[in-house]
Design a protein around this nucleic acid. Sequence first.
RNA 1: GUGGUUGUAGUUCAGCUGGUUAGAACGCCUGAUUGUGGUUCAGGAGGUCGCCGGUUCGAAUCCGGUCUUCCACCCCA
Length: 455
Amino acid sequence: MSKQKPSIPKGTRDFGPEQMIRRNYILQVIKRTFEKFGFLPIETPSMENLDVLMGKYGDEGDKLLFKILNSGDYMKNVGPDDEFNSIKILPKIAEKGLRYDLTVPFARYVAMNQGTISFPFKRYQIQPVWRADRPQKGRYREFYQCDADVVGTDSLICEAENVLMINEVLTSLGFQDFTIKINNRKILTGITEVIGAKGREAEFCVAIDKLDKIEKKKVIDELVEKGFGKTSIKNIDPFLELSGDNNTLLNKLKELLNDSETGMKGIQEIKAILGYLKDFDYSQKNLSIDLTLARGLTYYTGAIFEVVSNDSSITSSISGGGRYDDLTGVFGLEGVSGVGFSFGIERIYDIMEEKNLFPDENLTTTKVLLANFDEESERYSLSILNQLRNSGISSEIYPESTKLKKQMNYANRKNIPFVLMIGSKEIESQLFSLKNMNTGEQKELDLKNIIEELK
RNA sequence: GUGGUUGUAGUUCAGCUGGUUAGAACGCCUGAUUGUGGUUCAGGAGGUCGCCGGUUCGAAUCCGGUCUUCCACCCCA
């Protein structure tokens, strides 16, 4: 057998112990916050039936879905009629695919379990998703999403609570300078109505969303290219020039959108959300209304959120979400409104690493290593080890008796703060040598005192 | 999907216009120290130069393909 070089698929990653400890730290903060606000966890399968996934993310999305070949002789249904045409062949060779996000599987879950779910239903879900995208900076083919959604109510308290949760998670993780941007799809719809481009909202959103990345002129060019008329373009300008704090912004917007019923509704919604946040005693310092925030996703119908970190090299969003009025409709459950958001933990991780926000004590778990001198020492140590563990002290024994040097080296590299030495001398005297690896200091103590010392 | 970029020891990288035996640093192993790590010193092991093919007397080096890496676009977390 020829040796092969090990490798992993493009766009996937291994996570080593130190990375996992840090990832788990982030996830634990997120979970704790979600649960504090009354959200409960669910999980759905990695794979869904393709008809659940296909057509939910646009043509582009269908291409980016990982499809799973049928088991057994997957070519058995393919015949000459199929002419090597991949579109004709696909449904015959694959009926399952890997999930592309957590939102569609959640909608499927709600529709399937509507009989047993009591609404409003608040769930959170933290699982990997897969996209056959071309990987690049901060983008992978396998990555985690952390979603929290509440469905079955259109109360704007949910939106306000989203802001509170985002703020709590990021603050707990040590983020200091971030902005929670908020906008409303109805306002964007209102703008398209007022500028005389009614019904072209989707194209408008995709273009306008780029304003924070590329200059205004290029966005205008894109709109022109998409066929927006001259008067429409001219009418957009007052909206793009709006400035001021949240309240003045809303007041100016009110005048501009006076003729659009939908637009006015959007303004009311934002006002209501700000009102709730005031009742929650939320300072709103880092909350900013941003009319250029659109988010490409077409299913949003009300509030939309996005969060950016202001003091790091990563400028893309670390969290985002919004309200959707009819996510479960395609699965036969009509009229269920929901609002949800998601954390991008890969980016949060990168920013925390850049800004050194991970606490040090997370780096090691073992508190004490028991040295292994010989067979007698080994057998005697196991009972000591057991008593240490029963006292709640993370401890391990070097699993074979070898040179002490090697064992000390192991402790050193694993960042284990104490080494306990139990050789024939110690067994006889019942006083064990406890070495502090940071100071080099070594004490002879009995077991009771050792446990005290390590607790 | 489009355009560019990268690939040499476990890791980070040298290796000139093709020319004997492909180097360094760090890491790893052994010893100085057979019951004491992180420092020091001495020694050692590790490479079909991503893979396949071509040009050539001769290829890590030039050419083609392929895979991979990273980046930009589309799109998105």
